[in-house]
Computed example of a mutant assay.
Amino acid sequence: MRFPLYIAKRYLFSKSSNNAINIITIIAAIGVFAGAFSLFIVLSGFSGLREFSLAFSNEFDPDLKVIPKKGKTIAFSKTKEADFDKIEGIANYTKTIEERVILEYQEKTAWAFIKGVDERYQQVTQIDSSVDGTWFTSSEPQVVIGADISRKLNPGIFNYNHLMRLIVPKPGKGQITNPTDAFNQKNVIVSGIYNINSDLNGKYVFSNISFAQSLLNLDENTYSAIEIKMSAEADEEILKENILKFFGDNVEIKTRAQLNEVLYKMLNTENLAVYLIFTLVLIIALFNVVGSIIMVILDKKNNIKTLQSLGATPKQIKNIFFTQGMLMCTIGGGIGLLFSLILIYLQMQFDLVMITPSLPYPVSIEISNILTVILTIGILGLFASFLAASRSKKALKE
C-alpha cells in the first residue's frame, strides 16, 4: 500500500506540466472544502435553532406527564401521595388541573385554559423565569396570564380597580331554567404575565390549585394531571413502568418529546431536508474530483505505462488514483471541517452574527454533526475516487 500512497502524494502535491490540470485540481479541492464547510455550518445552525426552540417549551413542559386515559381527571388521594413519593427516580412532582374557561374584562372576552398548580409547580418547571410581575400567591384570588391574552384584554398587573372575571360552565346534567345558574364565576387579580412562545402565550391562565378546584367544583383529591421531574440518574423507561404499575391502566404517560410531537417532527424534517440539499451540493462538488483524477490519468498516461513496465500491477495503478482521490477528499474535507468548527466556536464566544441587537444567531457544536460530515465526505469521496480510478484500466489498454 506504500507504493500507491507514495505515487498518489507525488501526483497530488507536485505541479503538472499542464496548467489546466493544476487549476482543475485546485478547483476540486476548493469544492470539497466548501462542501464540508457549508454542511457543518448549516447542521450546527439547525442544532442551535433546535435547542433555542426547545428551550422555551422546556421551561413549561415536565420530563413526564401522567394524564387520564379516559375522562378528564385522576383520583390522587393523600394516601396515594405518600406511596407515590417512594417511587425511585422522581426528583419532584406537581399536581395540576386544566379546564377551558372564558375570560372577561371590561366587555372584552377571550378563551383560555385555566391551569391550577400547587406549590411544587415552580420546582418541576422553570416558568417563573418567564414571568413579568410576580407569581400568584394563595392569600387572594390571583392569576398569571399569557402575553397574548394580556394584549387582547389589557388588564394590567395588580389592577384592583377593575378585576378580571373567569367564567366556566357548571358540571352536571338536566335542563337549565336560569342561565345565570349554568356558570361558575370568580373575579381575580392579574399578578403577572408570562411570555414563553406564540403557542402558549394565548393558551393558559395559571392559578392556585385550590382556586381552580373551587371554580370547577372539584374535590381536593381530583386532578387533571401529575407532572414529574426526573432525578438525574433515573432511567426513563423503568420509571414509566413503575408509574404505570402504581396507577394501573387508568393513565398514560407522555414524555416531553411526545408533548411537543409536532414541534419535534417539524425540526427533524427541516434538518433532514437541509442535510439532503447540502449533500446534493457536495455530490456536485465531488464531480470535480472525478474530473480532476481523470485529467491526471490522461496526463500521466506515459508514466502509467512506465510503471507497468517496472512491474506495477493494474490493481496497484488503480489504487494510485483511488488514493489520490481519497487524499483530495480527506484534506479538503478536513480543512473545511476545521475552519467551520473555528467559525462556529467564534460565533458562540463573540456573537459575530446577530438576529436582533440583543439576540445572537444560535449555533451548537455537536459530535453527531461532526461525524455526519466525516461520514458523508468519506462515503461520497470513496464512491467518487473509485469511479475516477476505474478510468486507469482504459488508459492501460490504449
Rank of each mutant, 00 (worst) to 15 (best):
K315V: 15
I114K: 04
S138I: 10
S138N: 13
Y6L: 14
S130E: 13
D299I: 02
M1F: 07
N197I: 05
I367P: 01
T279P: 04
A182Y: 01
A257S: 11
A395D: 10
F3I: 14
N271I: 07
I149E: 09
E220S: 12
T323H: 10
F386Q: 11
K86T: 12
I374W: 03
A110F: 02
E99A: 15
T180A: 10
S47W: 05
I342R: 05
I293V: 13
K9L: 15
E107C: 00
I67V: 15
T356W: 02
R256H: 03
V168P: 00
N288R: 07
N302H: 08
L5T: 13
E252D: 03
L276T: 08
R120K: 07
V143D: 05
L43D: 06
K78Q: 13
K80S: 10
K315S: 15
M266W: 10
Y264A: 12
N195T: 14
T330K: 02
E51C: 01
I226C: 05
Q106S: 13
T125K: 04
T180L: 14
F183G: 02
I294S: 05
L352E: 04
F287N: 07
E261Q: 14
Q106L: 09
R100H: 14
A384S: 14
I335A: 07
G202C: 02
G291F: 11
